[in-house]
Simulated scan of single mutants.
Amino acid sequence: MTTRKEEAGPSGLASALVASGALQSEWLPTFRAVPRDMFVPSRIWPGTEAGTRQHPVVDRDKDPDAWLAAVYSNIPLTTQWDDGTHTGDGVGVTPTSSNSQPAMVFGMLSDLDVRDGHRVLEIGTGTGWNAALLASRLGSGNVVTIEYDPQVAKGAADNLRAIDLTPVAIVGDGRLGYPPGAPFDRVIATCSIGEVPYAWIEQTVPGGLIVAPWGTGYGGEAIARLVVGEDGTASGHFTRSSAFMRLRQQRPQRAEHDVYLKGQEWPADGVTSSTTLSPEALDGWVELFAVSLRVRGTFWSVENDEDGEYVVWYYSDDQQSWASIDYKPGATEFLVVQSGPRKLWDETEAAYRWWKEQGSPDFTRFGLTVGPDGQKTWLDRPGNLI
């Protein structure tokens, strides 16, 4: 008979992950050998399975049952805010380190398709759980893990030692890979990127795999699974949606809202029009991802109002263009204002309608090719560039 404690512990999580297909049989012994609780600090901010919000701190010393329940739930656990400067109990501004959602961890490990004897480079050690899973499966000598934040790296090293695993743990810039350990059969990133560092391709054997969360600065993100070719390029489809913290050296630097309006009151010098496309239609993660591939060099934010009304703002990275669209519940037409050389709402609407015309493709129909001259996205096949 299964007890309530077992349901909330490793066995319960394992059963749920196996039932969902996230945890494959070849990884089940490793899951059991590397307890997640050994790689979670005493203070955590649990997320939700859908990744829609994060809760206030859960402290193991104050509420061990709630802490253990969070650890053995299929949710991400934020372990650091604002590069360690936030120390309060509430949520900070930006989550900067975490223990990732178990379903995502094992989904990516499945994408990685490791075999006995493979050497793996991991970018983003975090709490060390993913590195420990790889080291337990492949042997510590076959795993190199890189973490940029010295304090995060120290915590991971302590966790790994406590479970008698000793992968090569480097404190440094993950973009550079680790030339002394190359070549690698596999590279996996546990932080999101907008540009695949070419060093990762150079340090991977032909036929090897690179698995990494990828997305533009616009929004929407997916796991890229790239096969390294003999010609020095890497190419492959996306496998699933994702939501990871950005590689620190690739975090966007964005201007404040007032910079775009140049100190004027809205609508400033904007040109007014209307649209029948509701901004709600662009809320989905795959919609955001698809639009992002055609509307490059942009980002957006939402300004909430009363009674369910809100304004979506679009901005160009070069600070020259902006647009706004007003959403009102029940409306069939929406006010649009655009300013600058780029008509950002027109571009966004055109990109969305293009996605619909292609049959509303999901992430797995999109792909990415990376070479020494840059990267290109495509739909269905590498020759069909976006």
Score class of each variant (00 low, 15 high):
Leu261His: 09
Val168Ile: 12
Glu303Met: 13
Asp305Val: 12
Thr369Val: 12
Ala331Ile: 04
Gly371Cys: 00
Trp67Leu: 13
Lys262Trp: 01
Val228Leu: 11
Val34Gln: 02
Ser241Cys: 11
Glu195Pro: 00
Ala69Pro: 00
Ser97Gln: 11
Leu379Glu: 04
Thr190Trp: 14
Thr272Gly: 06
Glu347Asn: 07
Ile44Gln: 03
Asp89Lys: 12
Gly217Asp: 15
Lys376Val: 14
Gly21Val: 11
Pro29Tyr: 10
Ser273Lys: 15
Ser241Glu: 13
Pro382Trp: 02
Ala222Leu: 04
Ile170Trp: 02
Val187Gly: 09
Pro29Arg: 11
Glu349Leu: 02
Met245Arg: 05
Val187Asn: 07
Thr127Ser: 15
Phe244Met: 10
Thr94Met: 14
Arg161Leu: 10
Asn159Phe: 01
Arg254Cys: 06
Pro329Gly: 03
Leu247Ser: 12
Gly340Leu: 07
His86Lys: 00
Asp326Thr: 14
Thr30Lys: 08
Glu287Ala: 15
Val205Ile: 12
Asp380Ala: 13
Thr233Ser: 13
Ser278Trp: 02
Lys62Tyr: 06
Pro35Glu: 08
His257Pro: 08
Asp362Thr: 04
Arg251Gly: 07
Thr127Gly: 12
Thr94Pro: 00
Ala182Gln: 11
Thr239Phe: 03
Asp59His: 04
Val34Lys: 11
Gly12Trp: 05
Gly308His: 01
Lys356Trp: 04
Val205Gly: 02
Leu379Ala: 08
Pro41Met: 12
Ala290Asn: 12
Phe106Thr: 02
Leu17Gly: 01
Leu379Trp: 03
Tyr327Arg: 05
Tyr148Thr: 06
Glu49Cys: 01
Ala182Ile: 14
Thr216Glu: 07
Val227Leu: 12
Phe334Lys: 04
Gln253Ser: 14
Thr3Pro: 00
Gly220Gln: 05
Gln375Asn: 02
Pro56Glu: 04
Thr85Ala: 06
Lys5Asn: 06
Arg251Asn: 08
Asn304Glu: 15
Trp129Gln: 07
Arg240Gly: 06
Val295Ala: 11
Glu287Ile: 09
Thr276Gly: 09
Arg381Ile: 07
Asp111Cys: 08
Asn130Pro: 03
Val196Arg: 04
Asp111Tyr: 07
Ala157Cys: 05
Ser292Lys: 00
Gly12Ala: 13
Ala281Gly: 01
Gly263Val: 08
Glu349Cys: 05
Arg381Glu: 15
Thr79Leu: 02
Gly270Tyr: 05
Thr233Met: 10
Phe334Val: 10
Ala169Trp: 03
Asp116Cys: 09
Thr48Asn: 09
Tyr198Cys: 06
Ser321Ile: 08
Leu282Arg: 01
Ala8His: 14
Arg251Pro: 09
Leu282Gln: 03
Ser42Arg: 13
Thr94Glu: 14
Tyr260Ile: 14
Leu109Ser: 08
Ala182Gly: 13
Thr85Gln: 07
Leu112Val: 08
Gln54Gly: 01
Tyr178Leu: 04
Ala189Pro: 14
Ser241Met: 14
Leu134Ala: 03
